[in-house]
Design a protein around this nucleic acid. Sequence first.
DNA 1: CTGTTAGCGCCTTCAG
DNA 2: CTGAAGGCGCTAACAG
Lengths: 352, 352
Amino acid sequence: MSRDSGTKRTTRPTITRPRLVDVADACGVTVSIVSRVLNGDPTVSARPETRARILEAAQRLSYVPNGIARGLRRSRTMTIGAVLPNLAYAVNAEILRGAERRAASEGYVLLVADAMEFGPTSAAYQRLLMEGRVDGLLIASATTAEGATTALSTLPLPVVHANRRGANFGVSVSVDDEFGIGLAVDRLVDLGHTRIGYVAGPCDADTARRRRAGFRARIEAHGLRLKSSMVVETVFTEAGGFKAMQQLLELRRPPTAVVAASFASAVGVMSAVTTSGLRVPDEISVIGFHDAPVAAYLNPPLSTVRMPLAEMAAAAVETLVRLIDGKEVEDIVIRSPTPVLIERGSIGPATA
Amino acid sequence: MSRDSGTKRTTRPTITRPRLVDVADACGVTVSIVSRVLNGDPTVSARPETRARILEAAQRLSYVPNGIARGLRRSRTMTIGAVLPNLAYAVNAEILRGAERRAASEGYVLLVADAMEFGPTSAAYQRLLMEGRVDGLLIASATTAEGATTALSTLPLPVVHANRRGANFGVSVSVDDEFGIGLAVDRLVDLGHTRIGYVAGPCDADTARRRRAGFRARIEAHGLRLKSSMVVETVFTEAGGFKAMQQLLELRRPPTAVVAASFASAVGVMSAVTTSGLRVPDEISVIGFHDAPVAAYLNPPLSTVRMPLAEMAAAAVETLVRLIDGKEVEDIVIRSPTPVLIERGSIGPATA
DNA sequence: CTGTTAGCGCCTTCAG
DNA sequence: CTGAAGGCGCTAACAG
């Protein structure tokens, strides 16, 4: 039919999928009604009989609209760019997963880019942003390269930051870090600890700053004093936690309990304690921030604060979609489900 | 989801990006030369002066071609669909990461879909495949839903399977599981172990079958006998490893060493040993398959077999691109860098 | 109720 | 050496 009307179809290596026109002349109408019927255009009142014929034909040919053509026409790609840091850490994987799920249910797909290499000069950056392949951007990296962020702020593109507040452009969706870290403090104080150490995250991440502030505030709310030597700043990795804990162990009076600002660093902390010949939780209690499947199987099982990360990611996608749709949005802090302390074997009563 | 209101924000006014025609009449020529010059068309011999003017204008307007329009025109989206299982496990995250990197350097971007929900009826499936948004598919799930795979095999779309051989369609890029698992056996035999248990993966994953076969072969190559009670099949999770190990511990003569077919299950194995009051490696040695950052910080540090997963993912992308380009490709087994046993504290000499 | 038509932004054959 | 023009497949006015 009109399939070969275009004279030379050149070399089409793959089998061409049915197009709108194919289903159109499969039932003797034109593309326009087919399009409108298939898209459920409310302003069209097709004769039931025609409509049925169209739907039947579409079904029979297993017609699916070409997303690229549609994207071009509507200047809407139904694609979201996700910029994420190292996926080897469960936190980020969980965010990506939550985002992908919600994106799918909103009719979007996710393009991923590694935040580590996401500078304005990178190929990924070019493809994602400049080529107009995405309708919006979900940035889940607390520490995206500075060059990238400033470049981004000049782009006419909706941006949502997940787990990061106060960027100078875009909207933020985050969790209540202060509250979450407070849960850890409360429980440790409950157990009689008064010398509680803190393995903080890098201060260039605002989420790390919030946790740290929350820790201090909660410690002081309990009438305790936080000596500055009890707080060590490090990166969000096992190695970082390990080194930080070694430092805490060198103190004249080491802490009897330690809260780590991430899951990975908490693992490092436990490892440092064990390696030094002390026991968790007998001599030192440990709590990590963010949960992971492996937590329950560590030796001892690591207590963690579980934050609603998947929900945060979902809300971030939802917000981004609203933004893309031109609706008003505002910064959001996800408070439900409430952060909760998962108690496992790594904490116990103060002994020292 | 309860949320918190902050400042209201809306999207910035959308500035339309420069088009080909903009740079064209910015220097008084037509789109056609501009297109050809910018794309480095070798068959065009533009006057140096014109060419310079064009490049300058493009630069000045910071013109970047619209990827969607180009995709429509060339029926090439420069996009690869990646179907992956649970990213919470480091193995998969590493594959995704390796794939993303290589895709970027090949000029492609990656669309991700969760293998767990990747059925032919899922929205993600629709968007990725049927809508023609991707030029090819990278499947890194050993156990993609059956419905999905059969549906896929009928699609005229290049497919590469990573870490999975013998699918009835597409090409495979995998690592040498047999060899890798053999390294673990060799070392344990070296250490004097003769009763070596194996916590296998689900037999519906061909990669799990290969590891299992490799294990048996290597055991027998050492002249040992493998009692069937020494092999327990389970899922690739901590919980799976835990339960499997419990089963092995109930044997009249439990193994003195255990090889687990995944990282997660190895963690579960160690946990089960410890929980039962035995010690690793004093009473039981443990080796896991696939490495992860956390391994070195477990208690005791977990010995693992490190496989070239990132390289595999990169090769898979490269193969897919070749396939997309219509070149001939064949199944690949990545043997470099060679799989290597990372010895950590979880293994020691046989004592029983 | 349905058809015609004009592009979305780009590439590319064919003329000049 | 450069221009003109026809689509890629689809949507959305605007007409009948």
